[in-house]
Nucleic acid binder design. Structure first.
Lengths: 252, 252
DNA sequence: GCTGCAATGTAGCGATGATACACAGAAGCG
DNA sequence: CGCTTCTGTGTATCATCGCTACATTGCAGC
């Protein structure tokens, strides 16, 4: 009746109804207290009938996934302009804050994305994780990562999701400092400090000595050092002994 | 018909049917792939009719909460005997591992407990968090906490839940080292080193290697290590190399 | 203009969470 | 024992839910 003129103007009518349904579902989801909606509500709000919804999204879960993906990517792209700092570490920190902020301001969508096991199909959470892995690879390429990029991405994702869900569950404010604390703790565990300011004096003897000590290190606590300290010590020794040749490193 | 005799033997018939329903729901939940069940399934499996279920648990959500609380507390008490170490730090680490293990082995229950916003009423997650806070207070009283106990509990809970949900979401194995890494990272950020440990195993080779590396250590930042880290590393190396004589033996 | 295809409305199915109502059996009391 | 009362349970049913078979509409290409 009426879509004809709109359809003729720009996008296909099908795409129009798609975004119509997605918008209606997102609005209902944001307004709902239970974090859920019925397909009938969505159809009524969007002005379409049930088969239209299922024709476009397959089932309710497909709609949920598309809504989450749409809103999440929209949120990211809207704030992406702020991520223009050349520093990958700064980008990483901003990415964390954006992630948490999105979750706190969109608890229903976030819970759908991260609060339940995957149902086989890939969702927006997988896409976000892929982006995170590339960010970690950037850091790795810049020599700022203590651990493999994939492991770092898993650590960061776990901690960020945990904090966000905790804030959602406890109804805590978004500006709570919990996110910052955990973020810094994870950062300290994942990201190494900038290469070296001056000229790092690393002699082959030091590297050999570090490798020797690393080989001698047992797995439990050593001497007066606690287990956690031993872990950190072993990690540092690995870094030092890995410096073998390319030690003198030159800043770009 | 038949419960009469059982009921007469010990507990009230009402309590019997309660645990009957809870067990049936837990079994169905563990067997279900979707992480959900229908009240009809539960009633059939428990051998009761629908009004009985609603008479005891109010609604489906009440049943879910009671099932989660029952299984979680059962899991904790079953493993609580292993938490007999006097060291509060060790207790904390074991608590973390137990938490993650429970989540990975009971993904459906865990998702119900932590994967969605609180619906006003208190659930098993709140109880678990209260236990965690008391543990953190123990650490605080032992002078092993860098930050307030409540903040530490929030950090630990966030990270542990995040890791567990990540493992559930990615279908990763329970023995994945991700949990250990995040756990150690959080531990390093929350717990301060101990006063004095016991008598750990130290080989003469390790002591010599530590002394050698200590001699090779320069004063500035070394390789990829920050200046502060280098300081700490040098300190630890001094501790290890000082173990030379009194190391292997244990003082009477 | 006719045909094929994608998109949409009408009507309804099966399953689900939840409930109104009545019955059963134990407890208390004469 | 008879009577009442209350908790616990079964029978039957409701409103809603996700979803779909089928018919209809509108638009593209020959």
């Amino acid at each position: 009746m009426y879509h004809r003129y709109i359809a003729a103007k720009e996008a296909s009518s099908a795409q129009r109804t798609r975004v119509l349904i997605i918008d209606a579902a997102a609005d209902l989801l944001a307004a709902s207290a239970s974090g859920d909606f019925s397909t009938r509500e969505v159809c009524d709000a969007a002005g379409v009938a049930a088969p239209t919804l299922y024709h476009h999204f397959g089932d309710k879960d497909g709609l949920l996934r598309e809504v989450a993906a749409d809103r999440f990517s929209r949120y990211l792209t809207r704030k992406q302009a702020l991520e223009a700092t050349g520093d990958p570490v700064e980008d990483f920190l901003r990415g964390w804050d954006m992630h948490v902020e999105f979750g706190v301001t969109n608890p229903a969508l976030y819970t759908i994305m991260y609060g339940r096991p995957m149902d086989g199909r890939t969702g927006p959470a997988d896409h976000a994780h892929a982006v995170l892995v590339t960010k970690m690879r950037d850091l790795e390429r810049a020599g700022r990562l203590r651990i493999p990029a994939e492991t770092a991405a898993d650590m960061v994702a776990s901690a960020a999701v945990g904090v966000t869900l905790h804030l959602i569950r406890t109804r805590a404010a978004a500006d709570d400092h919990l996110s910052a604390i955990v973020r810094d703790a994870v950062t300290a565990a994942v990201i190494s400090p900038p290469a070296v300011p001056g000229a790092p004096p690393v002699t082959p003897q030091l590297v050999r000595a570090a490798a020797r000590l690393e080989a001698e290190m047992p797995h439990g606590p050593v001497g007066t050092l606690r287990a956690s300290e031993t872990t950190l010590l072993r990690e540092w020794l690995a870094q030092l002994s890995a410096l073998s040749s390319a030690a003198g490193g030159d800043p770009p």
